[in-house]
Each structure stands twice: as structure tokens, then as C-alpha cells.
Amino acid sequence: MYLDHLGLHEAPFTLPPHPGFYFGLPAHEEALQVLRWAIGQGEGFIKVTGEVGTGKTLLCRKLMEEGNLGDQEVRYAWLPNPHLLPCELKSALASALDMPRPEGWQQDLTGLLHQHLIQLQQAGVRVVVVMDEAQALPDYTLEALRLLGNLDSKSHQLLQVVLFGQPELNRRLAEDNLRQLRQRIAFACALRPLCREEAQAYVEHRLYTAGYRGAPLFTKLAHHHLWRAARGVPRLLNILAHKSMMLAYGGGERLITPRLVSEAIRDTEDTRLASGWRQWLQGSVHAMFSIWGKNG
């Protein structure tokens, strides 16, 4: 591939979230600080939303990779599968917390979970459930999560829940039947697409982390094309940057120019459709001005 050609020791733009490539962008750092503070304060439910590809899963893994909060031991129970029945949710949580399962445990799973959570609290362990793709949770499973959040000792909640989801989660929670859960959400933050300067810094950070050293690999105009076509979405930036570098390798080039980025855009469905819409809109605007000019 292009690694040796461009002097890299690993691929900089892989799609699976990689905490080693985490870049402290303002929106992500703000969300991370809110999460740390809310978890440290023992707040029950926390919500993080963002469009597809804006880095929710990476932020989720970064949070869990950090582990404890100061002297406070934190046990994260990551539940990446939203398509769970309430009984499956409880069973997945029990597995994530390494809960002992005596004979007949299925008959009183909630009670056993309650006892196990009390034991963890007494051992000084804070338990945080991290739910990815929360917008896809069925209503009855969201309600089961709310009821699990009600588990407490005499003075403290035993469980905190962080919901990571797409903006559809906000619309779901606005429904009247989920108002009890909505009112339990103490803190919420939203991830946004990157501005042009952030997008360039993001791409250059990943290149540096992957081992690139030397003159800028992408021209300034190439960076602008990347950002505009990707609409500031990190996942699309990864796809386009990766394809641009493959094209450079295929052509024996060592500088990523707007021409290479344009070829990558044409080969990428989401950006190609967005680009086509933009060209249609620009053409319509030019046509209107022409008509007004003739009639003026």
C-alpha cells in the first residue's frame, strides 16, 4: 500500500475507532469534560448526541480507556448492541460486571444485580453503563434502563448511564411516553461537524500520529476540498484522505493535490451525492440571476 511510499508506519485513516488517534477537538474535549464531571458527581443519566461519523464511538472508547477518575475506581459496562429486550439488557449488564450467577439466577436477575451493585459500591467502585447507538433502543428497553437507574442504596445511586446516539435520540426522548427518562437526563452535549481549520488539523494530526514527517502532504486547497466534500464529518474525511493517498501512490506522486481529492470525491457515494446537490443548487442560483438580469 502507500505506507512505505509516504513514510508511514501505520494506516492513518482506518475507519474503526482507534483511541490512539484521538485528537482533542473542541467539541470532543468539551463533551469529555462534561462526561468526566458528571460521572465524578454521580449524576444518573448523561446524553451525548451527534450525526453519523462525528466521533461518538471514538469518544466513548476514549472515556472508557481513561479508566478511573482520580482516586475513584470506575467500572464501565459497554453495551454496543441496542437491539436488546429488557431481559437481555440485564443479562448483558450482568456479564459486563462479572456478576456471579447462582443456579436459577434468571428468576431474580434484577434482585441479583441490585445486590451485586451494592457490593461494588461498598468496595468503592462506581458503575457506569455506556450505551452506544442508543437511538435504536426500543421504548421498552429504554424504560428498562430507566428502572435500572432507579436502583440505589440508602444514600447513593448504584448505576449511572451514558447514552451515545444520533440526533434521532433527541426526537425519541421528546415523545410523551419517554418523559420520565427525559427528565432523568442531568447533562447533555452534542458533537458537531468540524470547521475548515479543525478538519485540516485533524487530518495532519492523524498523519503525524501514523509516523509522517516532512513537508505538508496535502496542499491547502486539497484540504479545503476534503473539508467541503466531507461536510466536516470525521468519518468522511478519513475515507477521502485514504482514497486520495491511494491515488497518489498509484500515480507515483508524493503531494496530495485538489485533483487527487476530486477523484476520491467522485469515487465516494455520500460525498458525490452531496457534491452533485451543491452543483445543482449553484447552477439554479446562477440561472435565477441570469433571468433577473435579462428582465431588469
Results as ranks from 00 to 15, higher is better:
L260Y: 13
M246E: 12
R172F: 01
E43P: 01
G44E: 12
T57Q: 10
A274Q: 10
G250W: 09
T268H: 15
R171H: 04
T268Y: 12
V161Y: 02
K243L: 06
M99H: 11
L207D: 04
L159P: 03
L117Y: 11
V285K: 11
W78A: 14
W292F: 15
I118W: 03
A201N: 01
L148I: 02
P167C: 12
Q282A: 12
R278P: 00
Q200C: 00
G293E: 06
W105N: 12
L236M: 10
L6Q: 05
A229D: 01
C87R: 14
L178F: 00
N295R: 01
I256E: 03
N238A: 01
V128D: 04
V48G: 11
K56W: 04
L145A: 14
P80L: 07
I291Y: 00
D152S: 09
G165Y: 02
K47A: 14
H114R: 04
L237D: 06
R75K: 14
R75D: 08
L151R: 09
M288V: 15
S284Y: 13
A123T: 04
V261G: 06
P167S: 13
E10K: 15
T110K: 13
L79E: 08
C195G: 05
V127C: 14
R184M: 00
L151D: 09
E269A: 15
I118P: 00
L89V: 05
F45D: 08
L145E: 12
N295H: 03
V285R: 13
E43T: 06
V130W: 06
F23P: 01
Q41G: 10
L237C: 06
L169D: 02
K62D: 08
Q119N: 15
F13K: 03
T141C: 11
P16E: 15
Q106I: 02
V161G: 05
S91N: 10
K220S: 13
P193W: 02
H242A: 11
P19A: 08
P16Y: 10
K220R: 14
L237F: 06
A222Q: 01
R192S: 03
F21N: 06
T49V: 14
L159H: 05
L8C: 04
D132R: 13
L112M: 09
K220L: 12
P17K: 10
L120I: 12
R182P: 02
Y202F: 02
A134N: 07
D270Y: 05
G67S: 07
Y2S: 11
R206H: 03
